[in-house]
Nucleic acid binder design. Sequence first.
RNA 1: UCGCAAGGGUAUAGGCCUUUCCAAAUUAAAGCGCUUAGGAAAGUCCGGACUCCAUGAAAAAACGGUGCCGGGUAACGCCCGGCGGGGGCAACCCCAGGGAAAGCGCCACAGAGAAUAGACUGCCUUCGUCUACGAAGGUGAUGGUGAAACGGUGCGGUAAGAGCGCACCGCGCGGCCGGAAACGGUCGUGGCGAGGCAAGCCCCACCGGGAGCAACGCCAAAUAGGAACCUCGCGGCGCAAGCCAGGGCCUUUUCAGCCCGAGAUGGUUCGGGUUGGCGGCUAGAGGAGCAUCGGCGACGACGCUUCGAGAUGAAUAGCCAUCCUGAGGUUCAUUCCUCAGACAGAAUCCGGCUUACAGGCUUUCCGCGCAU
RNA 2: GCCGAUGUAGCUUAGCUGGUAGAGCAACGCAUUCGUAAUGCGUGGGUGGUAGGUUCAAGUCCUAUCAUCGGCA
Length: 130
Amino acid sequence: MAGRNVPVAETPPAVSVCPIVIETLKKRADFLRAAKAKRAGQPGFMLQARSRDDGDALVRVGFTCSKKVGNAVARNRAKRRLRALAHIILPQAAKPGFDYVLIGRAVETGSRDFKSMQEELRHALKKVHS
RNA sequence: UCGCAAGGGUAUAGGCCUUUCCAAAUUAAAGCGCUUAGGAAAGUCCGGACUCCAUGAAAAAACGGUGCCGGGUAACGCCCGGCGGGGGCAACCCCAGGGAAAGCGCCACAGAGAAUAGACUGCCUUCGUCUACGAAGGUGAUGGUGAAACGGUGCGGUAAGAGCGCACCGCGCGGCCGGAAACGGUCGUGGCGAGGCAAGCCCCACCGGGAGCAACGCCAAAUAGGAACCUCGCGGCGCAAGCCAGGGCCUUUUCAGCCCGAGAUGGUUCGGGUUGGCGGCUAGAGGAGCAUCGGCGACGACGCUUCGAGAUGAAUAGCCAUCCUGAGGUUCAUUCCUCAGACAGAAUCCGGCUUACAGGCUUUCCGCGCAU
RNA sequence: GCCGAUGUAGCUUAGCUGGUAGAGCAACGCAUUCGUAAUGCGUGGGUGGUAGGUUCAAGUCCUAUCAUCGGCA
């Protein structure tokens, strides 16, 4: 119980002290650029990350689910889980000036345990930043 | 007929509203403000609304669709009622169900013969002849083939036979009766001359201009080569009026109407390729509930109440615990643990159809089994 | 979202008006060769995407459905 509450408890101060502005990635060209940069595969998703190097501290994140994931219901569900994941983790773990893309997987993204997916995202972020 | 089984907590989720900051817009912040996915949102199979394109009119052609009759509807290929046909013991279910004497075409194989009938095997009479058999004529019942054989069954009749005659059934035609009609009933008559296929061409009746919200309108950024308009000027004949040509006006033809015209310079504007934003954008042939009236019913009329998504890399959720149902394990114990809970996600909007679907609820009828 | 096209053998495909579904490559067998390839001869292989309907009879006609591919700002 205590372990699960840690991210929830830490989130409010991180927001108030250091306001990292997160924007959603919308243009196809940005997705293509991110795909050429670093990537880190995890059981529940795939993470791609790119440093823009344009001096702006803005953090941007995009979500992608292809038809491989399933029908429209499965794709929407996968995207929602990824969005919730990014919403919890990125404010504390993201680096300013980065673009991130989270890609959904066929079965795992919709059904995998949410707590372990949080750990995996933290791990993947470290891997990409190094 | 209901339909993630129930409600709750939590957001730096979407939209709308209000307030604050501001010259204004945008942005930002706030609000215990309101609201946020389906019966199929799906397939895109029909019918519309709406928008744009086309100068107008009417018909014809072409193309496409529908197809018993009547009604409902904004409209439909949908729905309701009736008729006819088929299936089922029954409740009930199913049917693209106009025309085959307008014409063309097709009917493989088998079979004598597959559509103006014809004569393989046969049967009968007469003649020739000892018989076998042959010739002439009559006949179309029998045999076998096939999906289908030119009305069927029975009796009479005959040399053998045949609607040749009769009865019943079927079919056609005509009258009468019932019905709004499809159609049904009945009487007479014809003697049967017209086999099937129209989801083959076709004929008849009716309907349809084309494209689609990525329509369409507006704003901003950005760049080789083209098009239109204004100005000068303009096909052949003719002094001229005018006549003769040619092209265009989004299927073709006809009629009416309008426009254009060789070439050149300058000016103005547009489109071609790339990309973003705004409007269209959600209140409508509205849905749901209740009551009254009309109708067999679909539905209509009127009154009251209530509900009401508008995103655009696309919100409507993720997570948490409780609880319900089911399965498995466990336990003295529905005690505890684990897993699962359908089909499926609005994208301009409505009316239908079709397809997918866990489980539940309600009502009526039929058959069978058991019990009384 | 809207509009269109195509499904036939392991692969690429033909088949108009309904009547026993063919071709090339591949596979297998035999011949040829010391052996292989090439070549020659022969053989097998088809729920016609799926389900209904019309018809005596459906790859073909009609309806529904599934899958794949393409176009439109």
